[in-house]
Design a protein around this nucleic acid. Sequence first.
DNA 1: CAGCATATATCGAGTGCCGAAGTATGCGCC
DNA 2: GGCGCATACTTCGGCACTCGATATATGCTG
Lengths: 107, 107
Amino acid sequence: MRPMSEPTYFILASLLDGPLHGYAIIKRAGELSGGRVRLAVGTLYGALDRLAGNGLIAVDREEIVDGRPRRYFTITDDGADAVTQEAKRMAQAARIVVRRQPGMVTS
Amino acid sequence: MRPMSEPTYFILASLLDGPLHGYAIIKRAGELSGGRVRLAVGTLYGALDRLAGNGLIAVDREEIVDGRPRRYFTITDDGADAVTQEAKRMAQAARIVVRRQPGMVTS
DNA sequence: CAGCATATATCGAGTGCCGAAGTATGCGCC
DNA sequence: GGCGCATACTTCGGCACTCGATATATGCTG
């Protein structure tokens, strides 16, 4: 498995709490990252197609609200495994550098 | 600052111990990651040019060993700051997912 | 009614990674 | 001596992904 990009990672992480539709994912990713991550729409919808193709997410249901379509996505078991793997990978990579900063406050 | 790719991150991390030449960076990155990261040569030399252009690394010295040139690179203060920043970013991102995995052993 | 938030789709440009091929040298082995 | 291998760097083309812009459509608010 090759590393996952930040947008991809946050899309999957956003779905861990339950199904969301595209725009809601953008907001959730913003919240989870403390406002740091702002998914571009072009990134999001491209990534959603790709992730669905890979089986990491799946369409949960489609609704029409106020005449506007809403597609809800769920994370699959494979997707949940992938984010967890990725989280471990990042944590370990971070340790390599952080470890040699003695006196760092771990907040 | 936008997130850093894994190859870029490991190149900078490799140089935290002192100057290294290209091929040695590949080996060091492999060691640091426990054999997981294998920098492709095309990735490496492209990234070295880019990072030098960004001022995150600099050419330390050039040697000729057995008629073969060797270019040693050092990490700059900006580079060290950037990896450290990136390590924090990854650690925080990892926490978002790992936190909801109760029962995880933090080694 | 103008402007903004919601919601999705699509496209083109740019960035960066990767594998492959090329150049060059020294060393060990048969 | 010549073959293959490890070292060391360069360059190139393809591919994946991100991003911003543009488009479309609706409802709410001033």
